[in-house]
Design a protein around this nucleic acid. Structure first.
Lengths: 331, 331
DNA sequence: TTGAAAGCGCTAACAG
DNA sequence: CTGTTAGCGCTTTCAA
């Protein structure tokens, strides 16, 4: 401490925060010395005193996908504005790892959590505990419907509906949807949109064209293969996310079929990857950065407990590219 | 504290760490109560006492790319094994943001840093300071050659050489290399490999076929366009990383040329994206997860200061796919 | 075998 | 205007 070179310890503390009680000259002298030694207050001491760590725990199913890593970017950006750091853990789609991550974060005394639940997560005691303890908790994308917590989602219902309409107006009549695990809200929302879309287009819902599969490449490839081997195979496939959409594209090509001539494909995907695949993929924009930012905003809102638990539903936009642009013979 | 329900505060502390001085029964009683209340020691108090935070700062140019996010995964994995957390900041390829991140991490009292420098970074005082203060510092992928710090790299020299040889044996004779900023070690290493490869194949180095560009999509597209508009345009392009390789693919197609018939393409890319583009991209495997793990290992080595500063060079592997498989007419 | 007390770095009453 | 003191939660000598 700068005690040595002037006065007492608390004077320094006060001077550093421009306390009006300290004489301007002294204040200046102390501040100069502090910046010369580039002193910064020890956050551990502060944290201990105030019982706050200025850290947020973030749990995602995977770190190394564009989707989650851009959401993390978004969270990081607003966390930084508030002078907070984020700690990141990935559940690898496993409930056990998710629970473990929650426990670790609690040990580390994060001030709250921002999470996207794992594919496996059905029981949610580990989150109920947090809510009971009044720990700020925000969900994004995949949320726990049973829990009263703030959350951010993309409008999957609208997305699926728009895609069905788009397929229909390009002549597709046997529209398939590869969905995720049934219990996930994202699966359900998009399913509802799919149903509504079909109905509005006057198409019948055919059970075999809606498949639920795990959200990984292999499962999605398998699902695609099964669809293509139906007696009356689909002429369009909508994938619940980019993993699924890309897997479907790979598999369609493997079967010697052409996109979009034989099968149209669309999915939820980010700009860059949609362009880079061939043919460019018609997709619904996933507003990832914004989702991260909104999630972080909700987090800081609930830190200050100044709001009811909001659910933010982000609008999506259909971006039409070559993977669906065709006129099917059935027209 | 569990003082209330038994004895004194230091007894509890000891019991929790199975100190031999405490009677077994008391120990058990205390531990039971602790786990019932699920007590965990406050890391802030511990940190304050021991002057350690068990946090590592990680700085990457971007979070939301597969390359960096998988490296982060790798770092996270071994950090977790050591009971450490990682804090992440992205420089967005800007030196200023990089410096800011270093300063923030220092304020947060991380125990050290693991970093991949930004594209802009030429002057490195902000890192020299760390080394002077004996703060553990590890570089990966893009390193500061002038600094004596442990680091992990992929073998870019070997990669470039292998790619040139592969191009050559498929009949390519006008092999271009789109490199990054000259001052980056990754640009240089791959350039050297490019030169060596050309020499070994008996090809002349032609200045106009080696271009340095910034590592973003637009710059890479522009560089590709320029190459394609040469009087004697290349019949093969090697991109320094995936951003560049994909940008080149997009641009080649935009010009109405076929891959690989007119121009072969290869780059440094991860498995998944290489497969998903069309045609599948011949590429050098980027051992990202491993790079992250090794970086973290080096970090913990230098925390215990028990080693000389190592440089780890990870082997790479050429994976041949359709983007280069052809027989050029010149054969 | 256990308790008391100091101290990690800092802030904020409370005194002067 | 400035100094003293207590205390945030914990470990660790030093005493008992």
């Amino acid at each position: 401490m700068a005690v040595e070179l002037g006065v007492s310890i608390s004077t320094v503390s006060r001077a550093l925060k421009n306390h009006p009680d300290i004489s301007p000259e002294l204040t200046k002298k102390i501040q100069d010395l502090a910046s010369k030694w580039n002193y910064t207050p020890n956050p551990l001491a502060m944290g201990l005193l105030r019982q706050q760590t200025r850290m947020i725990g973030v749990i995602v199913p995977e770190i190394n996908t564009h989707f989650y890593s851009s959401i993390i970017s978004g969270i990081e950006r607003v966390a930084k504005q508030h002078g907070y750091f984020i700690l990141i853990a990935s559940s690898n789609e496993s409930v056990e790892k998710e629970k473990e991550a929650v426990a670790n974060f609690l040990k580390a005394r994060v001030e709250g959590l921002i999470v996207c639940i794992s594919q496996q997560t059905k029981r949610v005691e580990h989150f109920e505990n947090l809510i009971a303890k009044n720990t700020p908790l925000v969900f994004f994308d995949r949320i726990c419907e049973s829990l009263d917590a703030p959350s951010v989602l993309a409008n999957g219902h609208d997305a699926a509906k728009k895609i069905v309409h788009h397929f229909f107006s390009n002549g597709c009549r046997r529209i398939a949807y590869i969905s995720g695990p049934k219990h996930l809200n994202i699966s359900q929302n998009r399913e509802m949109g799919y149903f509504d879309g079909l109905r509005e287009c006057g198409l019948d819902y055919r059970t075999e064209l809606l498949v639920n599969c795990n959200l990984d490449i292999e499962a999605a490839k398998m699902a695609t293969r099964n669809l293509l081997h139906l007696n009356d195979p689909p002429d369009a496939i909508f994938g619940i996310n980019d993993t699924v959409a890309f897997a479907a594209m790979i598999e369609i090509k493997n079967c010697g079929l052409k996109i979009p001539k034989d099968v149209s494909v669309a999915g939820f995907t980010d700009e860059f990857h949609s362009i880079v695949v061939d043919p460019p993929l018609t997709s619904v924009s996933h507003p990832t950065l914004q989702m991260g930012e909104e999630a972080a905003n909700l987090f800081f809102d609930s830190l200050q407990q100044n709001v009811a638990h909001k659910r933010i539903i982000l609008p999506i936009e259909l971006v039409v590219r070559a993977s669906t642009l065709n006129t099917k013979e059935s027209i």
